[in-house]
Design a protein around this nucleic acid. Sequence first.
DNA 1: TTTT
DNA 2: TTTT
Lengths: 154, 154, 154, 154
Amino acid sequence: MSRGINKVLLIGNLGTDPEVRVLPSGDSVANLSLATSETWTDKPSGETRERTEWHRIVIFGRLAEIAGQYLHSGSRVYVEGKLRTRQYQAQDGSERSTTEVVIDAGGTLLMLDGRAESTAQPTRSSPASRRRQTPPRGRAGQTPAPDIGDAIAF
Amino acid sequence: MSRGINKVLLIGNLGTDPEVRVLPSGDSVANLSLATSETWTDKPSGETRERTEWHRIVIFGRLAEIAGQYLHSGSRVYVEGKLRTRQYQAQDGSERSTTEVVIDAGGTLLMLDGRAESTAQPTRSSPASRRRQTPPRGRAGQTPAPDIGDAIAF
Amino acid sequence: MSRGINKVLLIGNLGTDPEVRVLPSGDSVANLSLATSETWTDKPSGETRERTEWHRIVIFGRLAEIAGQYLHSGSRVYVEGKLRTRQYQAQDGSERSTTEVVIDAGGTLLMLDGRAESTAQPTRSSPASRRRQTPPRGRAGQTPAPDIGDAIAF
Amino acid sequence: MSRGINKVLLIGNLGTDPEVRVLPSGDSVANLSLATSETWTDKPSGETRERTEWHRIVIFGRLAEIAGQYLHSGSRVYVEGKLRTRQYQAQDGSERSTTEVVIDAGGTLLMLDGRAESTAQPTRSSPASRRRQTPPRGRAGQTPAPDIGDAIAF
DNA sequence: TTTT
DNA sequence: TTTT
């Protein structure tokens, strides 16, 4: 139930591996750092410019565990969540605030690069192989897995 | 041209009148404080809970002027823009950052309440009467909560 | 769980009252006809043009009942759902298809005009008074309820 | 300028190569057939179910040319556009209507797979190799289902 | 800190 | 068929 709309949609790449921890309640929380890039042609100069925006993503529950298992630095993802600004105390004791994109049960997480481990044999999966991102799928030469971050955008 | 997606959609109410200023370039910029509210039923207790989230909105260009003309504290709006986190120096000299929702030429602003002045006879319109579209809230100088109750949502 | 994104966001006005029926399963279904309008300035002539698009909305479950209770011809709403194209047999026996925007448990319905009946005394509510849309709130002159469809948009 | 919101966001895979043609005005138009897939667990049985929805996409202008150059059957894309229902006369003379997702200058097209030709050495690029990014599907002449499995989604 |  |  809601009396307003608070919705964020992002497509971008992770800058680091997810940091997953388990709360005292047993729920998982994952923190992601996600970059979205936009490019444009500068009017007077005609030069191509680029700006990268970094987003703090916080994922709760089952999706947090999935993020920890399947995502890593470089992963391209779609996320849908909501904005939340939180107050906290900095180390010098001053009050600070930070704005995060929260993905909970009502949100969405969608991996955009390759089949990855969900179709691989779990027992042979390891952090090392996971970082290699899209595992061989045994049909070499036929269906190359897209590389990390592969995308053409317009 | 873009290589990612960075999109925010909000429906909520302004907590204050827009602050509009004109940049040295001649472009207008408007700052809005927008509240989105969500309510939910707490699991164990069955109580209805509410959380209000405040968003800093920055509007550029023609839409900034329109915001200054037609919006005011209490106005219900739909905005579509993008996230931008900006560094700035606090008064004590420390580095801080703030996250804003930027509405530029690619964004959208949609007023959701009242015919206001655009269809009213301009000669009889005044800032004072415009402000009366939402009730006086009698807490001048504070940060009044917007009239989020002005809608039924599900 | 999803392997793609199929999302529709609309803000517009109902062209008719909702048609609500109850399925054999006991679930409610509401059909809405929703108009979204866009206006633009024609390049060569400088004339203002307008195009209205009509959308078939199908709402399931609890939101269908709410739609039947609170919405009526002219109501301004925000809906979030997904596209679904359905085959059916026309009266002449030929196969036809129709595309609808489906709002189910994962979707959103948000009334954008006025407090309406949720704050009114239910026992005194009637179809007739409902059509009058936003009930008097007993503070005449202070907080006028926004009229049906009231909006300024940019 | 708009007085409503009419927005569609899709992430899915093309079922065929884009069909691009040039209008008498010189503008390009591309027609795409895009599949979005959702999976869910059936309540009583616990079985995993899947439903694929097909969308007719119409792209105008520069993005149409880009679609013709870089997209092909199997391509995974993000599109953002608006709904438009159009009347046309069927071959038997009867009136039909079809609903399309229109991507024009205000819309977005984002390729989600493969570096493809834009970053590859153009001299070594060919339509044939481009099509090999998705595996041969060996069902020429039919309407092959897109490789929706090319992603993990949650 | 990502990606192109 | 709505709305401005």
